[in-house]
Amino acid sequence: MNYVFQFNVVWEHFPELLTGALLTIQLSATAMVLGLCVAVLCAYGKTAGPRPVRWLVTSYVELIRNTPFLVQIFIFYFSLPVIDIRLTANNAALVAMTINLGAYASEIVRAGIEAIPVGQIEAARALGLKRLHIFRLIVIFPALKTVYPALASQFILLMLSSSVVSTISAVELTAITNSLQSTTFRAFEFYFVATGLYLAMALGFRASLSAIYWAVFVRGRGA
């Protein structure tokens, strides 16, 4: 091993890496919010919707969960333009991430809904509440609370898998790293530091998600 490590180049370009990391964070955070909305809708559809809706949700979830994220990205970015749906790289990435997260998270949210004691729902029904009201008022909040840890891990997995969107040249952290290493020829150093940045982002997301849990579920309503 005669290789001489040169991390100086990496530090020179560190601000660029940070810009990439920032985009990764933005992309992931947006996809988390949108994906959670998709997930809650799907979970409602699957637990309370009519049969065709349940069937539709199941197909969506199974389709997404049994195909690679990378191929999903290719379909959103390369295949859709053929039928005249054109997305910029960043938007294609966001859509792919949202749809991907929606599928995984909907199963998690559904598990939370099914863990709600039947008695509570029956009691609400006895009070004459409508289905949607029951869902909004009694079911979804405690359901999200019980499955929050699983949701949080899923969010972090999403953030990590976002590195794959570099293949459609969105300018997030991995894409920036790719271009920097190819102009400087210090591939190992750049990827090494970028990996560290991802690890730091994962820890940062974990901490923020715990803080959100505390603010919403512990202090917020005490539910």
Binding site: M1, Y3, S161, F188, Y191, A202
Partner: peptide, 25 residues
């Protein structure tokens, strides 16, 4: 475990790929 569950597989792939190149020249 933290390292491999807390970083993207793609990054692990790059680091291994270029890391092996570093080790074996």
């Amino acid at each position: 475990i933290e390292l491999f569950q807390g970083t993207p597989v793609l990054m692990q792939l790059f680091v291994t790929y270029y890391g092996l190149a570093v080790i074996f020249d």
